[in-house]
């Protein structure tokens, strides 16, 4: 069953859904929402659809979802015939996937908020958000260091799950919030592995791995 995504091109949470859909080859309808500068997600019409006034929103015949993690689970469970992205056959990995989906929401609260402040001048306590973002990135870096010592390439094991997609977006976008990846070598390696996945999708601020670029590509 396909779906409609209420989408904004610069939104990290919308990007998560687009990225997984692209990797799994799922076709869907996009309804662009003028998040900035139009604030279309705060209009009465939109609030009638999603009272939280946030993007993304996923609509299908019998589902209406307002949380990106829930959307990733919904899409994987329906369209991933390999059952690896939402690993329901493995209690351990499934539980870890839920755990890191929870962590991804923290990244939205820290890096996501700091990015809105940096890019759109949203009023915010930048120092506090910066401290929180660093704490979160260090937690992720610590975990990915341990995974690499174990010889595991992704958050929950040797294959990516919806949790990797969920954590990827704001980790990759942290330079938009003024936090570079220079001091996070394990995160850097993991971001690169995700960018190399078959079917990877870009967004402004997140580019494809150079290996997959055309020869002699250059911005003009």
């Amino acid at each position: 069953m396909s779906f409609t995504l209420h989408d904004y091109v610069l939104s990290g949470n919308c990007y998560k859904v687009r990225l997984l859909a692209q990797i799994l080859g799922v076709a869907y309808t996009v309804k662009p929402v003028d998040f900035h500068p139009g604030k279309a997600h705060k209009t009465p019409e939109f609030l009638a659809l999603n009272p939280h006034g946030t993007l993304p929103v996923l609509e299908s015949d019998n589902t209406l979802l307002t949380d990106s993690s829930a959307m990733l689970v919904w899409i994987a469970q329906q369209f991933d015939t390999t059952h690896t992205w939402w690993p329901t056959n493995d209690a351990h990995r499934l539980a870890l996937t839920v755990q890191w989906l929870g962590f991804s929401a923290k990244l939205t609260e820290s890096i996501g908020q700091l990015r809105l402040h940096t890019m759109l001048n949203r009023p915010a306590d930048a120092a506090t958000l910066n401290t929180l973002s660093t704490e979160n990135l260090r937690e992720l870096e610590n975990h990915l260091c341990e995974q690499s010592i174990r010889g595991l390439a992704f958050l929950t094991g040797d294959q990516p799950t919806v949790a990797d997609i969920a954590c990827f977006a704001y980790s990759a976008l942290s330079p938009d919030a003024g936090i570079e990846h220079t001091l996070y070598p394990a995160i850097r390696g993991w971001l690169h592995r995700i960018r190399c996945l078959e079917g990877f999708l870009t967004m402004p601020g997140i580019y494809e791995a150079h290996e997959t670029r055309n020869e002699h590509t250059a911005a003009s």
Binding site: H210, R213, E215, H216, T217, A218, A219, S220
Partner: peptide, 27 residues
């Protein structure tokens, strides 16, 4: 930038530099 074989290419206009640092290709 990005690595192309034995060269580093600049992200801006794509100039290529070899391992000795010499520019050898301007797109």
């Amino acid at each position: 930038g990005f690595v192309r074989g034995e060269s580093l290419a600049c992200a801006y206009h794509g100039w290529h530099y070899n391992c000795e640092g010499a520019c050898h290709y301007i797109p």
